[in-house]
Write a protein that binds this DNA or RNA. Structure first.
Length: 420
RNA sequence: GGAGAGGUGGCCGAGUGGCCGAAGGCGCUCGCCUGCUAAGCGAGUAGGGGGUUUAUAGCUCCCUCGAGGGUUCAAAUCCCUCCCUCUCCGCCA
């Protein structure tokens, strides 16, 4: 949710922000509705004030005067109720639109509307030259007995994978390695709940817009999160920090559940796009003046991790129209996937400015003593499914074995995965 | 799954129809006092929305005692619905 001041005082800025995202919103009639709702509410409040005055005088009155005052109060009460209902109705009509508007777009976000418009800003490493026929993770995994797509499909349907043996151990190694790295940089490790209330999803901006991407557990009115960003952000809902508490940085580990509606026929092979995967996610709460800097810092953390995995990648500045609703700006890291012969997203970091904090009411008291919304940011440290795939495919040898990057060897306890 | 208790300001906690946005305490802020610290004394200290204002400050109005609705001239207080939290028993990794 964005600051309503943009509609009232900076409408041009809001209009161009929406235009850059390819969103068409009738701001003039929205502004008109905003004026009208305030007029009606002001009127209602005036009547209410009058009624309050009458009510206050009643205990001192007697006889006819008292009876007359009661009658006046009653009439004012009726009038107030009518006006209030009208004001509430106008409010909810306004809010329905307002809550769905995406965050203000950062001026430095790339132009364009879709994935292809992302602008590459840096590159690390080169796609490896293999002197043999490259296998993708499905073939490698099946041959080594460490990925079983068929049996996962048997028990759960399409878009599920099963990670076994040394690859499962490698996942735990990566999680621990990432957590060690991040705690060294001031991130507090967290294992949050993955089932959350509706409010947490609304507050982080996934609801109402992306409702169809979220699994729900009807029995208890809970929802399975698609990322630990949701519990990490929402855990400080309604809180007011003192300035010295900031920044707050967390590294959340969780399983992530995604419906992947509307992706039929896309990335159907293997476990590149699945309904369930594990992820270590960074999340920061910062002073509004420092979020741009923090965003760069999260990107640095992501890059360092991918570099240590010895995987070639590039960083892109995501196009305005391809940002999620809550992000003002987003960087994706795209790793080289030899099996697909192209760069694909493995991490993503967003500056969501005050979009989530306004919805979740997460504030801090600044030096003047006034409460202000913090800025929130998130970034993938490691998304296990895709990271494992990238690792397998980039570090394969001609024999079908997989080399473990140096940084992980102490955590994994082995330096390659080979056929027995 | 069964039974019970409860949601009031940053925290604790009083408050069963008007003088209550709310006693008292703690915490915090400022000042005084004091070799230092502590103690003591005094004052201040909830949030949101609207109006006024270039904007702040100030002034002013409205709302908020979990949420929504109802009764009443008037609700923290009475009634209804919902949400949330806690305790005990059962079951359970």
């Amino acid at each position: 949710m964005i600051d309503i001041a943009f509609l009232r005082d900076h409408r041009e800025e809001l209009a161009s922000s929406l235009a850059r995202r390819g969103r068409d919103v009738d701001l003039d009639s929205l502004a008109e509705l905003d004026v009208r709702r305030r007029e009606v509410r002001t009127k209602a409040e005036e009547i209410r004030a009058e009624q309050n005055n009458v009510s206050k005088s009643i205990p001192q009155l007697e006889g006819d005067e008292r009876a007359a005052a009661i009658a006046t109060g009653k009439a004012l009460g009726e009038e107030y109720k009518t006006l209030l209902a009208e004001a509430d109705d106008l409010d909810s009509r306004f809010d329905d639109v307002w809550v769905r508007l995406p965050n203000m777009t950062d001026p430095t976000a790339a132009d364009g509307v879709d994935e292809d418009d992302a602008v590459e800003i840096s590159r690390f490493g080169e796609p490896p030259e293999f002197g043999f026929e490259v296998k993708d993770h499905v073939e490698l995994g099946a041959a080594l007995g460490i990925v079983d797509i068929d049996r996962a499909t048997k028990i759960s349907g399409s878009r599920f994978g099963m990670i076994k043996g040394e690859l499962a151990l490698l996942e735990f190694a990566i999680v621990r390695w990432a957590m060690d790295n991040l705690s060294g940089h001031g991130f507090t490790p967290v294992i949050p709940p993955v089932l959350v209330r509706e409010q947490a999803l609304f507050g982080t901006g996934f609801f109402p817009g992306d409702r169809d991407q979220v699994y729900s557990v009807e029995q208890d009115d809970l929802y399975l999160v698609g990322t630990s960003e949701v519990p990490l952000a929402a855990m400080h809902g309604e809180e007011v920090f003192s300035e010295g508490d900031l920044p707050l940085r967390y590294a959340g580990y969780s399983t992530c559940f995604r419906v992947e509606a509307g992706t039929y026929g896309k990335d159907t092979r293997g476990m590149f796009r699945v309904h369930q995967f594990d992820k270590v996610e960074m999340f920061s709460f910062v002073h509004p003046d420092l979020s741009v800097e923090e965003h760069e810092r999260l990107l640095e953390r992501e890059e360092e991790l991918v570099r240590q995995l010895e995987i070639p990648y590039r960083v892109v500045n995501v196009a305005a129209g391809d940002l999620g609703d809550s992000a003002a700006k987003k960087y994706d890291i795209e790793a080289w996937f030899p099996g697909q012969e192209r760069y694909r997203e493995i991490t993503s970091t967003s500056n969501t400015t005050d979009y989530q904090s306004r919805r979740l009411r997460i504030r801090f008291k600044d030096e003047d003593g006034s409460n202000r919304f913090v800025h929130t940011l998130n970034g993938t440290a490691v998304a296990l499914g895709r990271t494992l795939i990238a690792l397998m495919e980039n570090h394969q040898d001609g024999e079908g074995s997989i080399r473990i990057p140096k940084a992980l060897v102490p955590y994994a306890g082995f330096d390659s995965i080979s056929a027995r």
